[in-house]
Structures are given as C-alpha cells and as structure tokens.
Design a protein around this nucleic acid. Structure first.
Lengths: 340, 340
DNA sequence: CTGAACAGTTAAAACGATTCAATGAAGAGT
DNA sequence: ACTCTTCATTGAATCGTTTTAACTGTTCAG
C-alpha cells in the first residue's frame, strides 16, 4: 500500500535507480527526455521520497531545531516565524520545541534533535547546557543561543541587551517621578530576567531616594503576574511603579490591579511597564508601556549565523546584540499618545 | 568525529550489534550482565541512536505533524500544547507547522510530513485538501481535522460548534439591546469564519428589526482588525455592536475604536465581542466578551483519535464536537463583572 | 542418557535513497 | 578507421538500525 520506492519508479520508467535519483537531485546531469519520462513515472505511481533514507545516506536531516521557553509568549512565536522564514529559503524546516521553562523538557528536545541529526539548533536555554551543546557540536550539530549569551562566549548568540533594557525601563519610571519601584519577575535563573533586574538596579543606584524591591515569580506567565499583582494591590503601603519582567507578567499584574474592588489607578497610583512589546501590549486595559525587542529579526539572524556555522564549523563564534527600544504608552504616562 | 554507531558500541562491549540493539529495545531478552556491559559502552562512547536509520527500518517516524492557520494566535498554541502533552506520553513529538492561512505553505508542510513518514497529521485546513489527505491515508498516514469537519465526513475531526458559537455571540448582543450589528472577519473560505457568520445570521433571522452587515477581511489578525475598526470608527452612521470572527481581530478593532480622537465608547456606543477567549481577552483595554473554546482539550482529543486510527486504520471516522461557551465581560455589558 | 525446551547471542538480510566508479554510445578531430 | 572526448546511464556499495532465523550451550523431564 504505502511502499512506492525509487526502485518501482525506475522499473516503471525503464531506467536505473541511479537515474531516478539524479532526476530529483541533479536534473542537469540527465537527458531532458529521460527527465520527463521519470517525472511521469513519479507522478503515475504517486512516489514520495522517503526522507529517512535520504537522511541516513547524507548524515543529517533538513531540519533545524528551535527550543523556546514558552510557545505561548508571542515574543517567541515571532522569533520562530523569523527563523522559519529564513530557513525555508534554504529548504530547511524548523521544528519548534517548547521547554516551558523546564530543564527536563529542554533536555528531551535536545536529545530528539540529536537523534534526528538536525542541521543545527537554536535555543533559548533555561538551565546550564553548555556541556550538552558541546556534545552536539562534537557530533557536527552547531548551536546558536537565542536571547541569551553563553557564559564563556564559546557559542554564537543573538541577544538583546537586557541590562540596557532594564535600565531604560526603570530610568523611564524615575523620569516620570516614581520612587518606590517593584520589579516583578522570575525565576532569576533565567538570564534574561536576571539581566533586566540588573539593569533596573543600575538605574536605581545612580539616583538617590529611589528604592527597588524584588517580587520573585516562579514563571513568566499571565497567571503568575496576576498573583503578584493581587498581592501588591492588597498591600497597605503600595509602590508607585512596577516593572514586569515581560509583557505576559505585566498583563497579569494589570488584570489584578484593575479588578473590581481594587481602587488602584494605573498609571496615576501605580505606573506599569512590561518587556517585549508583544502585539497585545498596545491593546491592554491600559495600553502598556514596554521595551521593544526585534523578535522576528532575532530569529532571522540566529538562523543566518547557524547557516554560517554549518558551512564553516570552525568559524569563531559570533555575537550579535540588538538594542532594545522604549515604547511609552499610557500605563506609565497618563498623557502619552499610545503608540500602536 | 560524529560517527559513533551501534557497530562501535558492539565492538567496545565485545558483543554483536544485534545485542546492542536488543539492549536498547528489548532489554528483557538480554542477560543482565550484558545489559550493563553494553550500557557502559554506550556511555563511554557517547553513542546516540541515529533516528533516520531506525525510521528507515520500521517504516515511519516518531513524529506527528500539526499544521495550524496561525502560530501567533494563542488559540492554536494552546491546541498545540494539548496535543503535545498527549503525544509525549506515547514518546511521540509534535512538529508544529504554521500555514499562515496560505494554501501553498499548507501543501509544503503536508509534503514534509509525508516525506518524513509521520505517524499522523493533525490539521486545521485552509484550502480543500481532502484529495491530499486521502493520498496520505493511502500511504498509511492518518489525518485528523482540527477545528473543522471534512465536508464528506470521511476524516475524523475535533471541532467546536462554530455555528452555535456565532449564534450565542449575536444572541447575546441582541439580548443587550443591540440592533445594528456588524460581523468582522474573513476570509470566508475558512470554514470556522463561515460557520460563525452563519450562526450570526441565524440569530438575526429570528428577530425582527435587527440587521447584520458583513465586513470581510483577508486575514484574521490584529492588523486586519485594526483596519476594519478604523473604517467603522470613521463612518457617520455607526453600528451599535460588532462581532469579530476571533479575538485577534477583536483586539485590533478595539484598538482602532479607542484611538485618541475617536469618540466611540465601548460598550456604550458599540458593543464588541470576539471569539476564542484567549488569555489576553480579559486584559484588553475594555475586557473583551468572547466565545470560549476548550483549546487544549481540542488538541488533546485530536491526538487521542489519531492514535486510535494509527492502531486501527480501518476504524470508522470519529467526530467529536465540543460546545462553546459565552464569556461576558465589559466590552458588551457595562455592568459585567469581568471574568478572568 | 537422550531429546526437548529454553535462554542468550549472533550473523545476515532487510529498509530506500544517494553517489561514484565504470560502462557504453555518439561525435569530433586527425 | 582510429583514438579521444563528452555525455548519459548503470550497478553496486553505502549509510545505521532492527529483526529474524539459526546457532550454541545448559537444564530438565522422561
């Protein structure tokens, strides 16, 4: 039922299997008449190449693995789309893996990509996986870190300057006259979170009379943000500004602050700024100020670098760092004309 | 450098390749002492199974393909997560393909899954692909339609009753006293959109004095919604309610209506309801009423059915239909206590 | 003490596409 | 008429795993 192989095509077309293969992979090496003859046979038999066999022969597959922290975060789906666009130009497919911030799942995906002998791997790591990535590299599978540099810079990376982003966010809050600032985010083991916090701390250090408190979360989700927001809304002494580690968290915080019964006004009582500038930020209850990152560009660039490493495995690692951008909307500035 | 094969493991452990394979796949057939010996060799050499070879041997891969209309729509990422959860219990991986509502890309993904001899395919189709799916089935790759039934019911499907959902949305608007209703959505070639519209029409038919106008879009995105919203805001004669074909569109419409300069109030002047109840709906400028679909459940169930079909290819197609649920928030009812 | 049953292991035959060295055929040049 | 190219095609080997049939001991029932 399912087994139509090159052999069948060859027989049907009256040529050898080698010729059938050439028609598909090096048509220029084959006489035009033969090409059409073979193509007719392929058509007639409904032949579809068995990718496993092809992969087995040439050692690696036509796929690129991408492991992200959270598929539900639009930032990462944008990264994925960027990577996919570039990949498809090379005839590669992107396999999207969702680690959900779980090191075990991250491992499982790397294992899968290794078994599949992927062309390469793009990863936004959660745990310390340099050992694992080194093993992959030894096997001929390069890796590019996305949204996070490797501690020892031994792997290429495409990042956004999260420290700068964190600083921009908090400097903006300070410029708006805020002094009691809370950072909401976590886990701090995620480098992006730690960096944004570090940026925030630096912004505060240079100013007298400004305090920064950290509310740690165990995941960067709307739900976690909601919980933190509710806790803050219930306090007797409230901060006058909140910097959320990403927009999902910010949306959750915002929901909690605006709940019926809470009498917190945003931005009058508490200013709120997020991070990523996802599509939904501008459509929030109160349009959300945020730090914009060029997500699609990041994916695109990461794949570009990966391709270079495939072509030249011994090339020195490259580190591309994009600069984030402050987007001011009403959640931090009552008078802001909301950018869209 | 990369080539550690069973043969190497076998030599290192002093056994035959068959035994190595048995250690990995049927450990009970092998003497305990031999098992540990082989495992040590695997460890020592850093052996990782070549999936292509395995696939080649047993005819099909350990992956399931999933093609969705739009990865950026949280509804679909939720479906994907549901499917992935179930799949990983069976040791299968889900390959997520994004058709972006483009039939050509949809084709490309099906082609890929066919070449990879996937276990099966879950698809939320854009074009008419029954012929293509029939070909897949003939090759032993079952398909389950997600969020859309096949016209001739020859393929299993997991759907939500979109006609009922559309009806619920518009009946709710009518119950709130609205009479000049606009449906914003498209393309109508997408069955979900057509069904939701049909439901809307049915709701209107039964009521006198209620009109329904259709504003067609060419894609279900925030951007497209924004454009439609702007056009509606600029009219001299405005509708008093808008039913958007999904939440992304609704968010776009909402952004446009609330722009500085527009003096449309939601819900006072125009009530707005979306579809899908994505996480962000409750965090919108004006919390968004919507029609909730059990996204994760849909993915989970679709995969479940797929597994059944893999086990028994001749089983009759199954059709599971979930019922949608109305979620009322402030965008349609000023007095609503916003559900979260 | 023979034969059967059984456990553990092995060697060899698949799976299907690709590639490369070898072969054949057809012209071109002398 | 002969070699020399050039072009098209072929056949066989190869990739790494799994499986099956065959083989070797060993144990045990009769």
């Amino acid at each position: 039922m399912s087994g139509v192989s090159v052999k069948d095509v060859a027989r049907h077309a009256g040529v050898s299997v080698g010729t059938v293969s050439n028609v598909m992979n090096h048509p220029s090496k084959v006489a035009p008449a033969t090409v059409t003859k073979v193509q007719h046979a392929i058509e007639a038999l409904g032949f579809v190449r068995n990718d496993a066999a092809r992969q087995l022969r040439d050692g690696h597959s036509k796929t690129v693995g991408l492991v992200v922290l959270d598929v539900r975060n639009p930032f990462f789906t944008d990264v994925a789309r960027g990577a996919e666009t570039r990949a498809s130009q090379e005839g590669l497919s992107v396999i999207l893996g969702n680690s959900d911030e779980d090191p075990a799942r991250e491992q499982a995906y790397l294992e899968l990509f290794e078994q599949q002998r992927s062309h390469g791997v793009l990863i936004s790591p959660i745990g310390d996986i340099s050992a694992r990535l080194r093993a992959l590299r030894a096997r001929g599978i390069p890796a590019v870190l996305v949204d996070r540099a490797s501690p020892d810079r031994s792997f290429s990376s495409v990042t956004v300057d999260d420290v700068a982003g964190g600083r921009m966010a908090v400097e903006h809050l300070i410029a708006e006259g805020r002094t009691r600032i809370v950072f909401v985010g976590g886990p701090l083991s995620i480098r992006q979170v730690a960096d944004r916090l570090e940026g925030a701390e630096r912004a505060v250090q240079s100013r007298a009379g400004v305090s920064l408190e950290v509310v740690a979360l165990d995941s960067l989700s709307v739900i976690a943000g909601r919980k933190a927001g509710a806790a803050i809304a219930a306090r007797s002494e409230q901060p006058d500004a909140i910097f959320a580690a990403n927009d999902l968290v910010a949306m959750g915080v915002l929901q909690a602050l605006m709940l019926q019964g809470s009498n917190v006004r945003v931005p009058e009582d508490i200013a709120l700024i997020g991070y990523d500038d996802i599509d939904f930020a501008s459509a929030a209850v109160v349009p959300l100020s945020s730090i914009r990152q060029p997500a699609g560009m990041i994916g695109h660039t990461a794949l570009e670098i990966l391709l270079e490493e495939v072509a030249d495995p011994d090339a020195a690692p490259r580190h591309v760092e994009f600069q984030p951008e402050l987007v001011v909307r009403r959640s931090t500035s009552a008078s802001a004309v909301d950018a869209v």
